[in-house]
Design a binder for these strands. Structure first.
Lengths: 303, 303
DNA sequence: CTCATAAATGCTCATCACGAGCATATAGGT
DNA sequence: ACCTATATGCTCGTGATGAGCATTTATGAG
């Protein structure tokens, strides 16, 4: 019988110069990956081994993303099951005697996801026309309406929701507006900007971005991407880079403050341009101290 | 080379008579599961096939939970990778000519998770003493403090957080207070009440409960467990059964109302005992209409 | 030295969601 | 008629959040 191969794939993120970047191989066309082998004690350790071997880059925080069996990929007649992970680190200097890891800005693959300078022109100029055209080509009225609703929710009428990265990519895929999808169907208009990747790696990347954008809201994971000491503006710029949106400065500081996530180092940074900023460090203790966010159910008082 | 086997495991939930129940096999000792085979188009379809074959019960809503490689289970010298899913349905009548599916209340496996009638005595009487004893046996002061902190967070000082199902189970496992853990380590006091399962199935169940408890707060998934028409109290009792907590009635109604999740059917139910209650139905449209919850980041106004 | 500019920081205000609890309405049963 | 059990309506206080004004303190140009 043909066996099944397990492939481990990593989305490794760092934020440098206010740009979120991911670790890639093959000139940015692939994510680091490798197969799960008997020598690996756990899935996560297998992943760490592969990433460190391929990129010579240590991996910090890691969490599992999703598992799926890619219908189109086979391996000696068997199936490939893909287990994907999200990793957070900081960019290291190029290591001696190794292939320099290929860090690429993630908006290179998803240019429509960066709304820091307002709505990308790409959306109104190419994406929405392409999608509306696709909706018009629906087989019947019901499907037409459903397509229109999905477009409104992800790209159109509704206020921009930065978490819907995967839904947007899947929509563009279905509408055959990305090159990966055009291999099978010859329908659709011309492909829109945004670099493709091998296999389903761009889809995995979309999953990772979506997860990270959701997670920074309820768990203090941003700090995995920060240096030991930082100013509040640096922290804000990092979150903005990830979320792809501008944040309200004063409210951002208030939020950080009331959460008690950071403490002053006592030092200041004069390199900020204007008035010098206080430097802060992350209070690692809070991770252990606190659980998850509060409940959104109307819980009755314990009698 | 020894191959790798993929096992698909399902936590299938229904709520009957104000009790959350799960579909089990082998007298409640195992969750439905089977291996992923080449005949299965996707992982999810493989899972559906197995569950329906083993339990003669159709599966509705399904979502992936987690994937892991159980260190201790081998298969012809190879590894087993386990992919787990959460499924939601309603209990059907026993199908003709099949083995009756074994529905079991989930609090049978996690008696300490049901706080609907206040704190279970089990917690104060057995669990906390057992855990504190385990904390006392820590090798050094640092570990002792860490253990104490975990106990406080999950079972002790902090207000009860119903989402920490997995963390609590893992703590009890580490402290060898559950029978599954006692096979390896002979340390620990006596096991606490709560039925065990084969392999790591109780752990998978804990993951499923935790996921469902978290999800009902931000996605309208409860309705997958409801009949077509229901009263608001029935809905509340179902959520309470899942969350393991009592809810404030008036506020619960307000929440449901402001969310616009349901609409009146125009009929009333006089079977409630007191004043007859209006019957409602779920507005399926909202699933398509709305995306996820609002952001918790201080987003600046789009200029 | 003075002033424009760029940040950093401090505060205020309106709105809204949520926890709590009082009050009223309407069935069936005694 | 009265009691009990629900259903349903409404109010109040508090805290989180969105928005924006005002002040403080550096640097660099003139």
């Amino acid at each position: 019988m043909p066996g099944i191969a397990i492939e481990l794939t990593a989305v490794v993120v760092a934020v440098t110069a206010e740009e979120p970047r991911i670790l890639t191989l093959r000139s940015g066309k692939a994510l680091p990956s490798g197969s799960f082998e008997s020598g690996h004690r756990t899935l996560q350790m297998g992943l760490r081994a592969w990433v460190e071997k391929q990129t010579h880059h240590p991996l910090g925080y890691v969490e599992q993303l999703y598992t799926f069996a890619d219908r189109d990929r086979v391996h000696d007649g068997g199936r490939i099951v893909s287990i994907s992970y999200l990793g957070l680190t900081r960019e290291a200097e190029a290591p001696a005697g190794g292939t320099a890891p290929g860090w690429r800005g993630w908006y290179r693959y998803f240019p429509w996801e960066d709304w820091r300078d307002g709505p990308p022109k790409l959306v109104a100029r190419l994406i929405l026309p392409g999608l509306r055209d696709w909706a018009r080509r629906a087989p019947d009225a019901v499907a037409r309406k459903a397509r229109g609703q999905r477009i409104d929710l992800t790209f159109g009428a509704a206020p921009w929701n930065e978490e819907l990265v995967l839904q947007r990519y899947e929509l563009l895929f279905e509408a055959a507006l990305v090159p990966e999808a055009r291999r099978r169907r010859s329908t659709g208009g011309e492909a829109i900007p945004g670099e493709a990747m091998v296999h389903d790696h761009r889809r995995i990347l979309a999953t990772g971005i979506a997860r990270l954008r959701a997670k920074i809201k309820y768990r203090p994971v941003v700090f995995e991407l920060m240096p030991p000491a930082f100013t509040l503006l640096q922290l804000q710029r990092t979150v903005e880079a990830l979320a792809g949106q501008q944040l309200h400065k004063q409210n951002f500081r208030r939020l950080i403050d009331t959460q008690g996530l950071v403490e002053e180092t006592g030092q200041i940074s004069t390199e900020t341009g204007g008035r010098p900023a206080k430097l802060y460090r992350f209070r690692r203790e809070v991770v252990a101290e606190r659980a998850v966010a509060g409940s959104k159910l109307p819980i009755a008082r314990p009698i």
